[in-house]
Amino acid sequence: MKELMKTLCSVDGTSGRETRVRETILSLIGDGHDTRVDALGNLIVNVKGRERAKNKVMLSAHMDEVGVIASYITGAGLVKFTNVGSIQPSALLGKTVKFENGTVGAVGVKPVHLCDGDERTALPAIKDLYLDIGAESKEEAEKLVRPGDTAVFTSVWTEMGDRVLSKALDDRTGCAILVDLIRAGVKYDLTVVFNTMEEVGARGAKAAAFSVAPDYAIVLESTTAADVIGAPEDKRVCLLGEGAVINFMDRGTVYDRALYDKAFAVANENGIPLQPKTAVAGGNDAGSIHVSRGGVKTVTLDVPTRYIHSPSSVCDINDVKALRALAEKLAEAFASADE
């Protein structure tokens, strides 16, 4: 699983630019699957199970990661940009990003030595930041980067015991779990969707859910874990090493109570650690999926992830394994349910 995650996290693809991620997934799952790419770039895989399903179950994860998009090249050859997906300015300051053609950009910052008083600790807004790509003029810069080009955080995949550190854990972890499921084979027929454009409003999922038209949907995500030094106990949201996470409500969805209970029951039966997400925050593809067509019964399961939407997110491989196990068992339960 770590190898799959490393492979997928190392590919770059921000919202709307997921082609490389999709191609990597296609090569990882290999031939012999019924696959389709729709107009928005979603990858839809109909996975043949050993048995026929009573209900149509869709498992999904999103391929896109947060990043930046070049908006303007200044006369001095600097690149102005805006964020693609939600990024805190502090996650960008002093960091580097990489464009699709390999050009590295450094996020510049006024030297702290030259700042006075409050300016020394004030975080500039993203609109005031720029990228230095080593060019000395507009002409030189435009040979490397044009407005509309996208870049993602540079990051070196790092293992720290059971924990891994990388960019894009949100949501290549979900993608890795789904690739692993497809490769291992499943009990009941199901549809696996790798979505585009989650970070900019769950747009890929909206189109994919319409065309797949599932009875049940399970969204695999990464969610904020705030179990860091100094965090109040009740503000930690979820904890690394304590298993998979399930949402009861977030900014996009109020989840079906019966499914929430069912997930805990399945987790208990199978000895899989599962914790509730103890904050009503964030949103994900479930927000688009559960209101698709006449409505879809939807569950979101997550891997607790620290420093999400930064170049250095951290998650625990044991939680990833728990999520993989629960996703499979819950999909089986939904596929074979009597209604």
Binding site: S90, G94, V112, Y307
Partner: peptide
């Protein structure tokens, strides 16, 4: 020394 703490979050 004088690290710029504005850049500290998520610093490797």
């Amino acid at each position: 020394g004088g690290s710029d703490l504005r850049c500290a979050p998520a610093m490797r």
